[in-house]
């Protein structure tokens, strides 16, 4: 009876201590008497009972984040910039990760900062603040990964993300003034272009007016000329038939037309003689 229950207890103990359940995304590292023997993939695995073997689970799918915070760095052209970095990394090799680094994350941060500092020391401040960020990220990632691999850390960098590159607070207003000056440059040019697009149509209008006036003048001139010449022609015809009569008629008509309109004074021997009142 006692032997039986002892046997059952032993079986239960073995079942519990010999089976390992590894979650998906994890890896199990099995130590046999302290030495790493093998790794277990996700799912059900087996190991010898304690104290012969034991296992440690390592999450190999989680993307971990390290944030060194804002760091002031010297650029290649001896300016200072504040860089805000985030490193995303994961465990690529669970065995190397187990035996590689005593302090994984602080070491990773030191390596990434060192690589970043080296690259920034070869870049100018203007490139860093504008187009150079992608280059910085890629080169820092490659350099840091190379160093991690050289030291067999089992870590893989997924991304070195430069969250922010800013001039230090002491000089930020000077940098802002440069961007507003760049804006001013555009504004000045734009307002000059606005002047052009207002001025030219105005002038074209003026020019058209000048030409139209000239055309009007020409039309009037031509109309008057042909009117006058037509009159002359018909009077000339009349004059050819009866010269004296036509001349007299014309003279009298004009005298009447003028006389009825203007103030006429008749004088004799320098004395005015009154015709009316």
């Amino acid at each position: 009876m006692i032997a039986k229950s002892l046997l059952a207890g032993l079986c239960a103990f073995l079942a519990v201590t010999c089976t390992v359940f590894v979650n998906s995304g994890d890896a199990g590292v099995v130590y046999r008497f302290g030495a790493i023997d093998r790794t277990l993939d996700a799912g059900l695995g087996f190991k010898a009972p304690w104290p012969i073997e034991r296992h440690i689970t390592v999450d190999v799918s989680e993307v971990r984040r390290a944030e060194p915070g804002k760091v002031r760095m010297l650029t290649g052209d001896t300016n200072l910039v504040d860089i805000d970095l985030v490193v995303q990394y994961a465990v690529a090799d669970p065995v190397a990760y187990q035996v590689g680094l005593a302090d994984a994350e602080p070491t990773l941060v030191a390596i990434v900062l060192s690589a970043t500092k080296n690259i920034i020391a070869t870049m100018g401040v203007d490139a860093l603040l504008t187009t150079g960020r992608t280059q910085l990220q890629q080169e820092a990632e490659a350099a840091a990964q190379a160093m991690l691999d050289r030291h067999n850390t089992g870590l893989r960098i997924d991304a070195v993300e430069v969250r922010e590159v800013t001039p230090p607070p002491a000089v930020v207003d000077a940098f802002n003034d440069v961007s507003s000056a760049r804006g001013d440059r555009e504004t000045l040019a734009l307002s000059a272009e606005a002047y052009t697009s207002k001025r030219l149509p105005e002038v074209r209008g003026e020019a058209n007016l000048l030409i139209e006036k000239a055309k009007t003048h020409a039309a009037q001139r031509s109309a008057r000329t042909s009117g006058e010449v037509a009159r002359f022609q018909s009077l000339l015809e009349a004059k050819q038939q009866s010269p004296a009569a036509t001349r007299a008629q014309l003279w009298i008509e004009t005298a009447q037309a003028v006389g009825s309109r203007v103030d006429v004074h008749a004088i004799r021997d320098r004395t005015e003689i009154s015709i009316s009142d």
């Binding site: 440069v178 000056a181 760049r182 001013d184 000059a192």
Partner: peptide
């Protein structure tokens, strides 16, 4: 920076004037 800002502004003025 102030040198660069000045350069931008006078460049803008120059362009505006020529336009």
């Amino acid at each position: 920076r102030s040198r660069i800002a000045k350069a931008y502004r006078s460049e803008g003025e120059e362009r505006a004037q020529s336009i």
